[in-house]
Design a binder for these strands. Structure first.
Lengths: 141, 141
DNA sequence: AATTTAAAAGACAAAAACATCTTTTAATCT
DNA sequence: AGATTAAAAGATGTTTTTGTCTTTTAAATT
């Protein structure tokens, strides 16, 4: 489904959304500890997310990563697109390059429902909404 | 979603289901040509599928791969399990080792629908049924 | 029995994904 | 200004996935 990098990215962004703000940043070390993922690898991912304007960051003492209010409004799919690329959503489930309604693969029509379910998870909800829902249910982030 | 090997495997099995039988086998070369996938790589995959009893094969002249009537009755999920492992269905969408209804990840409940859609595609239909449906719709296999 | 055909098996190679380490840059604090 | 802190950037290493090639084994045909 998602690559490992992408899974880390999603978890990191949700965690940042829940626990940080402009005045309350989190360093890679702290974040890596919380998520129990390799520090340097996470650093690379955050770097890319930062470059793409999905998370915010500041250097130096009191620096770190955080999610601005604007950052929170983005759909979760932006994170996925940033790391795994936009193909994840649209590409054929059997990897055929020309699969579509006109030239469908053997699973094309069955796969539509799966496609929609996927969209509901990551395209239809903003980062803020996902976190809100999770906090309501007392889920760990 | 599925690994490349797994995508090849599914396509190969469906093709074999549509065009072969005990008396009408297909060699790796011919199959690779039809599916437009690398011959030797496909060979490896078929070897594994054969070892696991998902496809049938015969050596020597007039040899090749085919699907017996019994082979056809298996659900598509057997192919997926054989190549990508059984985890694909049950594992957490964010890769958390302990994600479940009791200790759910931030996307656990949203992911349920996606899970079900996925099951409907590969667990609820036999290979024979998928091929039948595809042939009815004139889809290329 | 000898030859041919094609899968089975295993060794090997390239690419991508995953992960770590070091250096540089920029910001803060004293 | 100098020291310190932490992200940015880049180099490097490891593992997994993907792909190729060669040898072996078994079956059929002559």
């Amino acid at each position: 489904m998602f690559s490992k990098s992408c899974k880390y990215a999603i978890r990191a962004v949700l965690h940042l959304a829940a626990f940080t703000a402009e005045e309350r940043k989190l360093g890679v070390q702290a974040l890596a500890d919380s998520l129990e993922v390799p520090k340097h690898f996470l650093g690379k991912i955050l770097q890319e997310l930062s470059r793409q304007g999905i998370v915010s960051s500041a250097k130096g003492p009191t620096g770190g990563f955080f999610l601005s209010d604007a950052d929170r409004q983005a759909p979760l799919s932006r994170v996925v697109e940033a790391i795994d690329g936009p193909e994840v959503f649209s590409s054929c489930i059997l990897g055929l390059p020309v699969c579509g309604a006109d030239n469908p693969c053997p699973l094309h029509f069955q796969a539509l429902e799966y496609r929609e379910a996927l969209q509901e998870i990551i395209e239809d909800r903003s980062i803020a909404q996902v976190v809100e829902g999770a906090l309501e249910k007392d889920l760990k982030l």
